[in-house]
Structures are given as C-alpha cells and as structure tokens.
C-alpha cells in the first residue's frame, strides 16, 4: 500500500534545562490519514514528543522531519500551518470578545487577506455547528463549547495534522463523545489525527494505532486490537484496557482484543453459534 510519510522522527532525544531526559531515542513514522493515540503516564514523554512536531520544543539530539521540513529548525508559525495543536485547556488560549474574532485571530496573524479570513471563519463555524453562538463571548460558553472553539481555532490554520492533548479530560461522557465525533469527522475528511490521552476506552473505540510511551521511549506500537492483548506489559506500565476488554479476557477471548461492547456482543453471538470466536479489529 502506498502511504505518504508525513512525519518522521529519528532517534529523538530531549533533555530539559533542568536535566530531565524526557525523550530517549524515539524513532517514529506517521503516515497521512493515520488515527494515532499516544498513551502513557505523565512524565513518560507523550507531550514532549508531540511538541517536537510543531517546533514548540527542539530535539537535543536526533531529527524530526515534518512533510519534508526540518521541524528542529523551522519557525513555530510556519509549522503551525501543517500541524494544528489543540491544548488541553481551552482557557489557555481564548482571549477575544467573540467566537468569530477568536477564529479569525490565527489567519490574521499569518497574514491572510480579509476575504480569505472571512471565508475560513464562515466555513469553520458551519462545519462545527457554531452558528448559534458565533457572536458570543467565549467565556460565556460551557467548557465543552469552549473546547469546540479551541478546535475551530486550530482548524483556521488549515493544518493537515491535528494534535489533541487530552481532548476528553475534565468532560463528562456526553462532552467527550461530542469532541470525539468532531475528531472522527476530521479524520474522515482526510486529516491525520494524533491524540494524547489517558482515556483507554476512547483509545479502544476511536484510534487505529496505539503508541505506548514509557520513560521517554516507545514501549509498544500496534493497532488497538493487538496492543490491548498485551496485558502484562500494559499492567507494568499501570495502563488498564477498557473494562469490556478485560472482561473478554477473563472469558477466554485472548487472541484479539475486544474493543467495545458491540464487538463483545458479536463475539458472544458467534460463540453461541459455533463456540468459536471470529471477531476483532475489522468490526470497526
């Protein structure tokens, strides 16, 4: 299969000024259209790795190439047209008087024309369904809505790759589902998605590739239906697969990880018919 390499990290090492070695020789290839989740404990290097993609952090050793550009040297403003980074807390970026103004800020900063800016803003408001609140003050919105505005701001730079840092943290199930459906929609439109998260159920239900980080290195890199069969390595890293996956394991489904309730239902139906299990990732 011809896949276009969009990000290539080679032996990345990052040492913070305080001496902490947050990345210790990470090599990773990310292809266009992937849906990737980076998991691991805090301090394992997830965010440090992600911040190398758009130049917020520079490698101490090694190289990071983003669509042919050396991201170890390019300006953040240049890289942010390729990599859209959505921070965990929308309140760390929102500051304008209206949502329209907020979305227009990025395009204005990178020198888009008035017409172009307006075109982008209108389109994004429509795509994300923000029409009813476009002239409202960002701080008058709920956290979930503020987060959608944060996504809108990243969209306004028209990047090809989106990095989401903990998109579901601090939200209830409904809020999490809503943001995930936006991310799924972006992925369906051809964008490359990278999610940093602790939410294993979300990883199981949405991601197509799981990168597990531990102590600044990649400990595991596999599709979720494979990754979540590695119970022992996951347990040593204190990562717990979703409850339904663990239940399936206890019931003896061990060759493929069951990733959601629907797959479990299908598997149980199958086992009733022939007591043989034929299910797995392709159910998605």
């Amino acid at each position: 299969m011809d896949r276009e390499l969009i990000i290539h990290g080679e032996n990345l090492t990052h040492i913070y000024p305080n001496g902490v070695e947050a990345l210790r020789g990470v090599t990773i290839d990310i292809y266009r259209g992937e849906y990737l989740a980076i998991v691991g404990q805090n301090g394992s290097g997830k965010t440090t790795l992600a911040k190398h993609l758009n130049g917020l952090l520079r490698p101490t050793h090694g190289a990071i190439i983003v669509r042919g550009i050396d991201a170890g040297k390019a300006k953040v403003s240049e890289l942010s047209r390729i990599i859209g980074y959505v921070f965990q807390n929308p309140d760390d970026m929102l500051f304008c008087n209206s949502i329209e103004e907020e979305i227009a800020f990025g395009p204005e900063m990178i020198g888009c024309s008035k017409e172009e800016t307006k075109h982008r803003v209108d389109e994004i408001i429509q795509v994300l369904g923000l029409e009813s609140m476009s002239d409202q003050h960002p701080f008058a919105l709920s956290l979930g809505d503020r987060q959608r505005v944060a996504v809108a701001c990243a969209l306004s730079m028209e990047p090809e790759v989106f990095v989401f840092d903990e998109p579901t943290t601090g939200q209830d199930y409904f809020g999490g589902q809503r943001i995930m459906s936006i991310i799924d929609q972006l992925h369906a439109s051809g964008k490359t998605i990278i999610i940093i998260t602790h939410d294993m159920q979300m990883v199981a239900e949405h991601a197509q590739r799981v990168v597990v980080m531990s102590a600044g290195q990649i400990a595991l890199d596999a599709p979720p239906e494979k990754a979540f069969t590695q119970l022992e390595p996951l347990e040593t890293l204190s990562l717990r697969p979703p409850q339904i996956t663990r239940f399936a394991f206890r019931m003896g489904w061990t060759d493929h990880a069951i990733l959601n309730v629907q797959q479990m239902l299908a598997a149980m139906n199958g086992s009733h018919a022939s007591s043989k299990i034929e299910t797995g990732g392709e159910a998605k």
Partner: peptide, 17 residues
C-alpha cells in the same frame, strides 16, 4: 509555568514573534 503554556498556545496560532 502557566504563562509559558499560554505563550506556546498562542505561538501555535501564528503569533510568530
């Protein structure tokens, strides 16, 4: 720390320099 994080967030929105 927070100021640094905010600055990073705004850098990503094209605040070049």
């Amino acid at each position: 720390n927070r100021a640094e994080l905010i600055q990073q967030a705004q850098l990503c929105r094209g605040v070049g320099d």
